[in-house]
Simulated scan of single mutants.
Amino acid sequence: MDIVLRATAVFFMLFLLLRLFGKRQLGQMTPFEFVSLVVVGDFVQQAVTHNDYSVTGAALAIGTFGFWALILGWLGFRSKRVRDLLDGEPRVLVRHGEIQRAMLERDKIPVDELFSEMRLAGIASLKQVDWAILETNGKISFIPAKEDHNSPQQ
């Protein structure tokens, strides 16, 4: 029972840690951040199983993590409120061609990274973007600006 309680506590500590990382950070990890997460994995194992290296202890720890992931997934499926808490909400980074700097700061996205993502999407200029939205999965969606139909055609 001790392993189940420790696994539950560690599960929710990891959940909070990953929420603090932000959406974009997990999708764009540096090698150092990746290694840090691997090291955190070792710390988690030590915190959860302590000195219990048995198959039963490992099964209890994995089962507890799986249980909480399943419960949170089910709750997120059933409730928009819970889903918003777990996944967050999409954020508008560009509105009608204007960068929303407060949103970039909130998610720790440098402006040059926004421009890099625009280029990867085949967008050359901010004038071509009506909306840029940071999705809950960490990717940025771009909605192109509509062409001005009153301007002369080339």
Rank of each mutant, 00 (worst) to 15 (best):
M1L: 07
D2V: 12
V4Q: 08
V4W: 07
V4S: 13
L5P: 00
R6T: 08
A7L: 00
V10N: 02
V10Y: 04
V10L: 05
V10D: 02
F12N: 04
M13H: 02
M13Q: 13
L16S: 14
L18E: 08
L20W: 02
F21A: 12
F21C: 14
F21Q: 14
K23C: 03
Q25D: 02
L26R: 12
G27S: 08
Q28G: 00
P31S: 03
V35N: 06
S36W: 00
V39G: 05
V39L: 14
V40R: 00
G41P: 04
G41A: 03
G41S: 01
D42F: 01
F43Q: 04
F43Y: 09
V44F: 01
A47W: 05
V48F: 00
V48I: 14
H50M: 11
H50L: 03
N51W: 01
N51L: 07
N51K: 14
S54N: 10
T56D: 05
T56E: 14
G57T: 07
G57D: 05
A58F: 13
A59G: 06
A61S: 10
I62F: 12
T64A: 09
T64N: 09
F65H: 03
F65W: 13
G66H: 07
G66S: 10
F67P: 03
W68S: 03
A69R: 15
A69H: 10
L70N: 10
L70F: 13
I71V: 15
I71R: 10
L72G: 04
L72D: 03
W74H: 14
W74Q: 15
W74M: 13
W74R: 14
G76R: 02
G76T: 10
G76Q: 03
F77V: 12
F77I: 13
S79D: 10
V82N: 07
R83N: 10
R83H: 05
D84S: 11
L85A: 15
L86Q: 11
L86P: 06
D87G: 00
G88A: 06
V92M: 15
V94L: 06
E98N: 06
E98I: 09
I99K: 04
Q100D: 02
M103H: 12
M103D: 09
L104K: 03
E105K: 11
R106E: 12
K108D: 07
P110M: 01
V111A: 08
V111E: 15
V111I: 14
D112Y: 12
D112N: 11
D112V: 09
E113K: 09
F115D: 04
S116M: 15
S116F: 14
E117F: 01
E117C: 00
E117R: 06
M118D: 05
L120E: 13
A121G: 06
A121H: 08
I123Y: 05
I123C: 05
S125E: 13
K127M: 10
K127L: 11
K127F: 02
V129Y: 04
A132C: 03
I133E: 04
I133H: 06
L134I: 03
L134N: 00
T136Y: 07
T136D: 09
N137T: 11
K139M: 07
K139S: 11
K139T: 13
S141L: 04
F142I: 06
F142D: 02
I143Y: 15
P144D: 02
P144R: 12
A145G: 07
A145K: 06
K146R: 13
K146C: 00
E147M: 02
E147L: 02
D148S: 08
S151L: 11
Q153L: 13
Q154N: 01
Q154E: 12
Q154C: 00
